[in-house]
C-alpha cells in the first residue's frame, strides 16, 4: 500500500524532516507513527498526502511514485486518502452534515448518494443525531469524531491521522483510538501519528518510531 524508499525531506532553511527512511505498510494494516514532536511524524504523513514532496528517495502509494505526480494530479490523489487533523479543520460556518458532505461534494456525487453516505458515516462515529449542529456546539471529542466521519465518508482505502487525540483528554483519546480500530477492522489501512506513549500502551499494533527524522524502530505486533 505504502512504500518509502530512502526518503529524505529537507525543508527550505536546511531543517531535515525525514532522513533516509525506508519502510513498507501493507493494505489493511493499522500502524502508529510515534516519536517526539519534531521527530518527523507529520512530515511522513505530509509526504503521503502530497502536502510536501520528498527531497530524495521515492514515496510509493499503491505502487505509484507520487513524488513525481504533476500538480494537477494532486487533488485526485488526495481524494483517495482520508485525512484527520489534530485541530480537526472543520468549517465553523457549516453544519456537521455539510462538513462531512464536503469530500463527496468535491468528488461530485449526486445529492441522494451524498445524503445516504453522510448519514452512514455519522452513524459510524455515533453522531447521527447531531447532523444539523454546528461544530462549535459539539464537545472537542465529538468534533474530532465529525472529523473522522469526514475522513471516511469517501470510503478511502487509506486513512492518515496526525495527532488526532492531541487536544483530547485520556478517556476521549482512547475512545477515538478504538474508533479508528473499528474502522480498520472493516479494511481501511491506517497510519496514525501520535506522541502519546501512554495511550499507545493501551493499544496493540505496529509502531514506527521516529527520532530526529530517522526511523529508529519498527515494532511489529505488540
Amino acid at each position: 500500500m505504502i512504500r518509502f524508499e530512502q526518503v529524505t525531506k529537507r525543508y527550505p532553511g536546511g531543517r531535515e524532516g525525514l532522513v533516509d527512511v525506508s519502510m513498507q505498510i501493507g493494505a489493511g494494516e493499522l500502524v502508529f507513527v510515534t516519536g517526539h514532536s519534531g521527530a518527523g511524524k507529520s512530515t511522513l504523513l505530509k509526504l503521503i498526502a502530497l502536502i510536501e514532496r520528498p527531497t530524495r528517495g521515492q514515496v510509493l502509494v499503491e505502487g505509484r511514485n507520487i513524488g513525481r505526480l504533476p500538480r494537477r494530479a494532486i487533488p485526485a490523489h488526495r481524494r483517495q486518502i482520508g485525512m484527520v487533523f489534530q485541530d480537526h479543520k472543520l468549517l465553523p460556518e457549516r453544519t456537521v452534515f455539510e462538513n462531512v458532505a464536503l469530500p463527496l461534494l468535491i468528488a461530485g456525487l449526486r445529492r441522494r448518494d451524498i445524503q445516504r453516505r453522510v448519514r452512514a458515516a455519522l452513524d459510524q462515529v455515533g453522531l447521527l443525531d447531531r447532523e444539523q449542529a454546528r461544530p462549535e456546539m459539539l464537545s472537542t471529542g465529538e468534533q474530532q469524531r465529525v472529523g473522522i466521519a469526514r475522513a471516511v465518508v469517501g470510503r478511502p482505502k487509506l486513512l492518515i491521522a496526525d495527532e488526532p487525540t492531541g487536544n483530547l483528554d485520556p478517556a476521549l483519546s482512547l475512545e477515538i483510538m478504538l474508533l479508528f480500530r473499528r474502522l480498520n477492522e472493516v479494511g481501511v489501512t491506517m497510519l496514525i501519528a501520535t506522541h502519546d506513549i501512554g495511550l499507545l500502551d493501551q493499544l496493540s499494533g505496529r509502531r514506527l518510531m521516529l527520532d530526529a527524522g530517522r526511523l529508529a524502530a519498527d515494532l511489529g505486533l505488540h
Partner: peptide, 14 residues
C-alpha cells in the same frame, strides 16, 4: 482562506 485550504486538503481541484 480556511475553507479553501480545507477543500484543497480534501482533494478539491482548482
Amino acid at each position: 482562506r480556511a475553507e479553501i485550504e480545507v477543500a484543497k486538503l480534501l482533494g478539491a481541484t482548482d
